[in-house]
Design a binder for these strands. Structure first.
Length: 1122
RNA sequence: GGGCGCAUAGCUCAGUUGGUUAGAGCGCGUCGCUGAUAACGACGAGGUCCCAAGUUCGAAUCUUGGUGCGCCCA
C-alpha cells in the first residue's frame, strides 16, 4: 500500500520532514560516499560575507550553486562542496564602528586596535547562523562544518605564501595610489562608500593663463574646477589629435591657445572678440614649456632636467610643459587641462608615463603641497595650514591680482562627500600603497579568460573582457586593522625588506621576539581564538634580526591587504596549500563550476583569475605549478541581480521584499527554488515577485502532486503492488528494473497512449540532460513543465477509464499503472536537483513500498538516461494533432453553446494534408471520447466548410525572388485558394504572372491556411479545421440527460462523504416522460459510472430528496449508501 | 561622465540563424468539466514589441542615435 495522502498537501511541512530525514539518515554524506570513486566535479563556494541578513537575492545564488552539484552527483560525479566565509575587510570594521557609535580611525585607535579586532572577529559570526539556517532550509547541500574561514591561521598563511611568491618574483612593489580621501577622518574610502556620497554642488570653475616660456605674450588657456590643486601643478595636457587655435584678443592683443572647438562658445560666453591667428594639432604643442600659476616648486625646479630613458644623450625639462593625454575632450573647459598628479588618478597616470620616459630616478617626482589633513603644507607658505576647499576663493583672487585669471565661473557637477560626515567633501589624495604587478600578466589573463565558459557569454568579451583590457596594477594594501596582514618585514636601518610565508617561519628567524604580546593576551583571556595571533596588533609586535644590517631589526609594514585578495586566494587557501593538503588542492583545481552575481565581475571573478594566472599561469616566471587554461574555474554562471518588488535595489529600509524565512514558511523552499530556476534564465535581472513564487505551486509542484495523489488513490483501491510483482532488488526502479515483474508488459505491447507518454518522458529526459550539461537550468525546467503538463492533462485524463475499470487484472489496467508508476518514479529523479524536497517526499512514498530493496533517497539515485528506443517523434506529432483537434472541437462546441456533456453524432476534421490521416482514423476513439461524439470523419475535401488561403513560404521564396515577394503574396491572396490547390495537385506547380514574368511555385513554396466558413460549427487551427454536426436526435438528448444525472450523483456521493469504493442505491422521480425513457434506456451506464447497485424510478426511504434539473426537466434524486 | 546589460500583454517573463496571425503563466472575463476536486480544461479580451532613423522583399530580432532602468567604474 502506498501511504494515504493528506487531502491538502502542505509543502512547508513536507519539507520539514524531509530535512529531518536527510539529517537523521545522513543522506548528503551518503550521496558523497556513493560517488567517491566517480570522476570529480569541482565546485568552489564564493565565500559570503556574513555581514547582514540574507535576502531573496542570496537565495538565487545559493539555489544555483546547489542545483548543478546535485545534478552532477546524480550523474555519478564526486562533487565536494566546502563552505566558506569571507570574514575580513572594511565592511566588518564599519559594522563594528556603527555598533560602537564611532567612525574615524582616530577613534578606533583611541579605543585600541586589540579590543577592536576582537570585536571584528566576534562580529563576523553574528549573522553566520542565519546564513547557515538559510543554506540548510533552502536545501543547499554544503559542508558547513568544514567551512574555510579567511581569518584562520592556515588560510592567512596560504595567502602569505602567495604574497611571498609575488614579492620574491618582484611583482609586489610600493607606489602611490590616488585615493578618495576623507581628510577630516584621515582615511581612504572604498569605491562603494564614495559612490554613496555623490551629490550635485557648484564649484568654482577657473580659466587660467599659463604663459609660454618661449613667448610670454602667448598663454595656454587652462581650465579647472579645483583651484586649490593649482599650486601643485606639474603639467598641462592636450589631446594630440585635437585641433588647437591661437587667438588674438582684439582689445588687449593677448594671445591664447585653446581647442578650436571651444573658441566660439568661450568667446560668446565672455563677450570677447577673438581672431584666430594660427591653428595646429595638439601634437604640435607637446613639449612647450610654460610658467605655472604658482612658483613654489618652479623657482627651484623650473630648470631641472633629466636624461631620457630611450636616449641617454638627450635631456628634457622635468615638468611644466605640455603633455599628451587621450582623456582630454572638448565637452567643457578649454581643451587644455591642468595636471596636478597628486590629486587625480588620471593625472597621476600621466605623471607615471612621464616618469617612465626618463632614465631611472631622473624623472619628475610627485609634487604635493597638501598634507593628509587636507591642509596646505609649508611648501605653499601663502596658504599653509588652510583647508584646501576653503582656500579656493583666495587662490582665484590671487590669480586675478597677478593677471593670470582669465575667467571665474561656477560649475555644477556631482562631487563625492563623506557618507559618514556629509559636510566633508572628499579629495583625491596620494597615499603610499603596495601594488601587485598584474599588468605584466594582462595577456595571460586575457588568454585565460578566453578559455572560460561564461554564461551568458557576453561577459567574456563584454564586461569582464573590457575590464581585463583596462587592467591596472592591483592596489593591494589597506591602511586598516582587520585583514590579512601584509607579510613584509622591513629593515629599520637599510629599508630593505623581505616577505614571510608562515608564523613558523617567523618563529625560526634569528633574534625573533614579540611573541610574548600574544601570549600575554591569551593568558589574560584564554577564550581568544589562536587564529588572532597572526593578526594585528599581535603580528606587528614580532621583530627579528635584520639580515641586511648587523644589529638592526626587521619590523613589519603596518598595512593589511584588500580582502578581495583573500577571497581570490580561496582555490588554494581553502586547503591551507601549500603548507598542507597539497593533494587536496591538486585534485580540486581548477573548479568546474562557480556562480555569483554580476557584481562580482571585478570582485571575486577577477581576484580569482588574477591570482591564479599570476601563480599558476603559463607565461609567468618562477611559477612552480603550472596549469593549462582556464583556471581557476571553467564554467561560470553570472547571475543577474534580483531587484525589489518596486524595481529598485533590494533594501531593508524600503521593505521591498520578504524575508526568505517567511517565504519558506508560507510557500516552501521548493516553490522558491522552482520560481528561481524555471521562470527565467538565471542571468537576467529579475524583479522579486511574491505572486510568482506562489504561482509556482499550482503551476508545477501541486500539479505533479495531484498526479501522484491520483495514482496512489487508485493503486491502493486496485491493489497495484509493484513491490510484490517484482522480486529481489529493485535497483533504480527504472523501466529496465521492472522488466521481470509480474504483470509488467514491454512498452511495445502497451497502448498507444502509454507508448506516447513514455516517449514524452524520454524526450524530457534527453532535453533535461542536454540542457543541464550545458548549465541551462531554465531550458531544463521548461522540458519538465511540459512533461508534467502532458502527464497530468493528457495522459491521466485520457487514461481515467482504464483506472476506473472494474477488471483489476486486465492487462490494459496493469499497463496503465506500470506506465504511470514509471513516469512518476522517473520524474522524481528528474526533479530531484531542482525541487529536492518534493522529489524526496514523492520518492519515499512511491519507492517506499519496496522497503530496504529500494534506494532510500532519490538523491542517491542515478540521474535518468534517455531510452532512445522509447522516443517516437512521429507519435508526438500525431498526438499533438489529436490534442489540437480536441481543443478545436471544444472551441466549436463553445461557440455553439453545446456543452461537452451533450453527445453529438459526428465531427468532421478537415486536414491540411493527408500525412497522418490513416493514423488518426485508427485513433478516432480518443477523439470521440474527448469530444463526446459518436463518429469522427477525416477529409481533405473541405471546400464546403472552409476557405483555403494560400500564402508564400517567405523563408523559402525570399532569397529566391526577393523584391517580387510582395507581388506574389498579393497575387496568391487574390486568387481562389481552392483553385490554386487543385492546380498544384494536377500540375505539381502553380504558375503566376507577376510583374510581367511567369513565376512557378511548387508545394514547398507556399503555405496553406484554413479558414472556416461562417455558418458552420467549426473552428480552425494551424493543421486542421474541426466541424461539428449540430443535429441533436432525441436519442442523443436522452444520453445527455444521463450524463447530467451521473454528474449529479457523483456530486452527491462527494456531498455524502462516501468512500471511493462505497456502493449506492439510486432513485429518481420525475414527471417528464423523456427523462424516464432516458433513464430506463441507460440505467446500466449510470450505475456503472457511479458504483450503483440499483436505479429505481421512485423515492428511496431514508435518503434526502435532491431537487435538481436534468436537461430542462425537474427531478428529484435520492442516493443511499448500501 | 565611461563600460556592460536590460526595455515585449495589467503583473512576472519567453521569443531560435530576420520570414509576414509575437507567445506562456498569473490576473481579468465567459464557458465547461466534476471521485486528482481548496483541483482541472477551453475560449476571449488585453500589445505603437521604449522612441526615432536606417538596412532589407520582409525587423520585436540587424545598424545608428535618443529615452528610461540596473550594475560596475569614475
Amino acid at each position: 500500500m502506498f501511504p494515504e495522502n493528506q487531502q491538502n498537501v502542505q509543502f512547508p511541512q513536507l519539507e520539514a520532514e524531509v530535512l529531518d530525514f536527510w539529517k537523521s539518515q545522513k543522506i548528503y554524506e551518503k550521496s558523497l560516499d556513493a560517488r567517491r570513486d566517480g570522476p570529480k566535479f569541482v565546485f568552489y563556494e564564493g565565500p559570503p560575507t556574513a555581514n547582514g541578513m540574507p535576502h531573496p537575492g542570496h537565495c538565487l545564488t545559493r539555489a544555483i550553486k546547489d542545483v548543478f552539484p546535485r545534478y552532477r552527483t546524480m550523474k555519478g560525479y564526486y562533487c565536494e562542496r566546502k563552505a566558506g566565509w569571507d570574514t575580513h575587510g572594511l565592511p566588518v570594521e564599519v559594522e563594528v564602528c556603527k555598533e560602537m557609535g564611532i567612525h574615524s580611525k582616530e577613534e578606533i585607535e583611541n579605543f585600541g586596535i586589540e579590543p577592536f579586532i576582537h570585536k571584528c572577529q566576534a562580529s563576523v559570526w553574528r549573522y553566520m547562523q542565519e546564513w547557515e539556517r538559510l543554506t540548510e532550509r533552502l536545501g543547499f547541500w554544503l559542508k558547513l562544518d568544514e567551512a574555510y574561514v579567511t581569518y584562520h591561521q592556515s588560510y592567512v598563511e596560504s595567502v602569505w605564501w602567495a604574497l611571498k611568491n609575488f614579492y620574491d618574483r618582484g611583482l609586489l612593489y610600493q607606489g602611490h595610489k590616488i585615493v578618495w580621501w576623507w581628510a577630516q577622518g584621515g582615511t581612504a574610502l572604498s569605491a562603494g562608500e564614495v559612490g554613496q556620497g555623490y551629490r550635485e554642488v557648484a564649484d568654482p570653475s577657473v580659466y587660467v593663463r599659463f604663459p609660454l616660456v618661449e613667448d610670454p605674450k602667448t598663454a595656454l588657456l587652462v581650465w579647472t574646477t579645483t583651484p586649490w590643486t593649482l599650486p601643485s601643478n606639474q603639467f598641462a595636457a592636450v589631446h594630440p589629435e585635437l585641433e588647437y587655435s591661437t587667438v588674438e584678443d582684439e582689445e588687449t592683443g593677448e594671445h591664447l591657445i585653446l581647442a578650436t572647438a571651444l573658441v566660439e562658445p568661450l568667446a560668446t560666453k565672455t563677450k570677447k572678440n577673438w581672431k584666430t591667428i594660427a591653428t595646429c594639432l595638439g601634437a604640435a604643442l607637446l613639449g612647450k614649456r610654460y610658467l605655472p600659476p604658482f612658483d613654489y616648486y618652479y623657482k627651484t625646479l623650473g630648470d631641472a632636467q633629466g636624461r631620457l630613458a630611450d636616449n641617454p644623450q638627450a635631456t628634457q625639462h622635468l615638468a611644466w610643459r605640455v603633455v599628451a593625454a587621450d582623456f582630454v575632450t572638448t565637452d567643457s573647459g578649454t581643451g587644455v587641462v591642468h595636471q596636478a598628479p597628486a590629486f587625480g588618478e588620471v593625472d597621476y597616470d600621466v605623471l607615471k608615463e612621464e616618469q617612465d620616459r626618463f632614465a631611472p630616478g631622473e624623472g619628475p617626482d610627485l609634487i604635493c603641497a597638501v598634507g593628509p589633513d587636507g591642509k596646505f603644507t609649508a611648501e605653499a607658505p601663502d596658504y599653509q595650514g588652510r583647508w584646501v576647499k576653503e582656500a579656493d576663493k583666495d587662490i582665484a583672487h590671487e590669480l586675478k591680482t597677478r593677471g593670470r585669471l582669465f575667467l571665474l565661473d561656477q560649475y555644477l557637477h556631482d562631487y563625492p562627500f563623506c557618507w559618514r560626515a556629509d559636510e566633508d567633501p572628499l579629495i583625491q589624495y596620494p597615499r603610499k600603497s603596495w601594488f601587485l604587478r598584474t599588468t605584466q600578466f594582462k595577456d595571460e589573463m586575457v588568454a585565460n579568460n578566453q578559455q572560460i565558459n561564461w554564461l551568458p557569454d557576453h561577459i567574456r568579451d563584454g564586461r569582464f573582457g573590457n575590464f581585463l583590457e583596462s587592467n591596472v596594477d592591483w592596489a593591494l594594501s589597506r591602511e586598516r586593522y582587520w585583514g590579512t596582514p601584509l607579510p613584509i618585514w622591513v629593515c629599520e636601518e637599510t629599508g630593505q625588506a623581505e616577505a614571510v610565508c608562515s608564523y613558523a617561519e617567523l618563529e625560526a628567524k634569528p633574534g625573533a621576539t614579540g611573541f610574548e604580546v600574544w601570549a600575554a593576551a591569551k593568558k589574560k583571556n584564554p577564550e581568544l581564538v589562536d587564529d588572532l595571533k597572526i593578526h594585528k596588533p599581535y603580528i606587528d609586535a614580532i621583530t627579528y634580526d635584520s639580515p641586511f644590517a648587523k644589529g638592526a631589526k626587521m619590523q613589519r609594514v603596518t598595512e593589511v591587504i584588500d580582502c578581495w585578495f583573500d577571497s581570490g586566494a580561496m582555490p588554494f587557501a581553502q586547503w591551507g596549500y601549500p603548507h598542507q593538503n597539497a593533494d587536496r588542492f591538486e585534485e580540486q583545481f581548477p573548479a568546474d563550476f562557480i556562480s555569483e552575481a554580476i557584481d562580482q565581475t571585478r570582485g571575486w571573478f577577477y581576484s580569482q583569475l588574477a591570482i591564479s594566472t599570476l601563480l599558476f599561469g603559463k607565461g609567468g616566471d618562477g611559477q612552480t605549478v603550472r596549469h593549462e587554461y582556464p583556471h581557476p574555474f571553467k564554467n561560470c554562471i553570472v547571475l543577474g541581480l534580483m531587484l525589489g518588488e518596486d524595481g529598485q535595489k533590494m533594501s531593508k529600509s524600503k521593505r521591498n521584499y520578504r524575508e526568505p524565512n517567511e517565504i519558506f514558511d508560507k510557500y516552501g523552499a521548493d516553490a522558491l527554488r522552482w520560481y528561481l530556476f524555471a521562470n527565467q534564465p538565471p542571468w537576467t535581472s529579475i524583479r522579486y515577485n511574491e505572486q510568482s513564487i506562489k504561482d509556482s505551486i499550482p503551476e508545477f509542484l501541486l500539479r505533479l502532486w495531484n498526479v501522484y495523489s491520483f495514482f496512489t488513490i487508485y493503486a491502493n483501491i486496485d491493489g497495484f503492488q509493484p513491490e510484490q510483482a517484482l522480486t529481489g532488488q529493485a535497483g533504480q526502479l527504472s523501466g529496465a528494473d521492472f522488466a521481470g515483474a509480474k504483470g509488467y508488459r514491454p512498452a511495445a505491447e502497451r497502448s498507444e497512449l502509454d507508448r506516447w507518454v513514455l516517449s514524452e518522458l524520454n524526450q524530457a529526459i534527453a532535453t533535461v540532460v542536454e540542457r543541464m550539461d550545458a548549465y541551462d537550468n531554465y531550458g531544463a525546467c521548461g522540458a519538465l513543465t511540459n512533461f508534467v503538463d502532458a502527464l497530468s492533462n493528457w495522459y491521466v485524463r485520457r487514461s481515467r477509464d482504464r483506472f476506473w475499470s472494474g477488471d483489476k487484472e486486465s492487462p490494459e489496467k496493469q499497463d496503465a499503472y506500470w506506465t504511470l508508476y514509471e513516469c512518476l518514479i522517473t520524474t522524481c529523479k528528474l526533479i530531484a536537483p531542482f525541487t529536492p524536497f518534493l522529489a524526496e517526499g514523492l520518492w519515499r512514498s512511491l519507492a517506499g513500498v519496496f522497503g530496504d530493496r529500494a534506494i532510500e533517497s532519490v538523491h542517491l539515485c542515478d540521474f535518468p538516461a534517455p531510452d532512445e528506443t522509447a522516443i517516437d517523434l512521429q507519435l508526438s506529432t500525431r498526438m499533438n494533432l489529436i490534442r489540437e483537434i480536441s481543443s478545436l472541437g471544444r472551441k466549436a462546441r463553445m461557440d455553439e453553446k453545446l456543452k461537452v456533456r451533450q453527445p453529438l453524432s459526428l465531427v468532421e476534421v478537415v486536414l491540411a494534408d493527408a500525412t497522418h490521416q490513416d493514423w488518426l482514423e485508427s485513433h478516432g476513439g480518443l477523439i470521440r471520447e474527448e469530444l463526446n461524439v459518436k463518429d469522427v470523419q477525416f477529409t481533405q475535401e473541405g471546400q464546403k466548410y472552409i476557405d483555403y488561403q494560400v500564402q508564400p513560404n517567405f523563408k523559402r521564396l525570399g532569397p529566391k525572388i526577393g523584391k517580387l515577394l510582395p507581388q506574389v503574396k498579393a497575387a496568391l491572396a487574390k486568387a481562389d485558394g481552392g483553385e490554386l490547390l487543385s492546380q498544384l495537385e494536377s500540375n505539381g506547380q502553380i504558375t503566376l504572372e507577376v510583374g510581367g514574368q511567369a513565376i512557378e511555385l511548387d508545394g514547398e513554396d507556399i503555405q496553406v491556411r484554413l479558414q472556416a466558413k461562417p455558418g458552420w460549427a467549426a473552428a480552425q487551427g494551424k493543421m486542421c479545421v474541426v466541424v461539428l454536426n449540430k443535429e441533436l436526435t432525441p436519442e442523443l438528448l436522452r444520453e445527455g440527460y444521463c450524463k447530467d444525472l451521473v454528474r449529479l450523483i457523483q456530486d452527491q456521493r462527494k456531498e455524502m462523504d462516501l468512500a471511493y469504493t462505497d456502493r449506492i442505491e439510486i432513485g429518481v422521480t420525475t414527471d417528464a416522460d423523456e427523462l424516464t425513457a432516458a433513464l430506463t434506456e441507460n440505467g446500466a451506464y449510470i450505475t456503472g459510472e457511479t458504483l450503483g447497485e440499483s436505479l429505481v424510478l421512485n423515492a428511496l426511504t431514508g435518503a434526502t430528496a435532491i431537487e435538481c434539473e436534468i436537461g430542462d426537466f425537474a427531478a428529484k434524486l435520492f442516493v443511499k449508501k448500501v
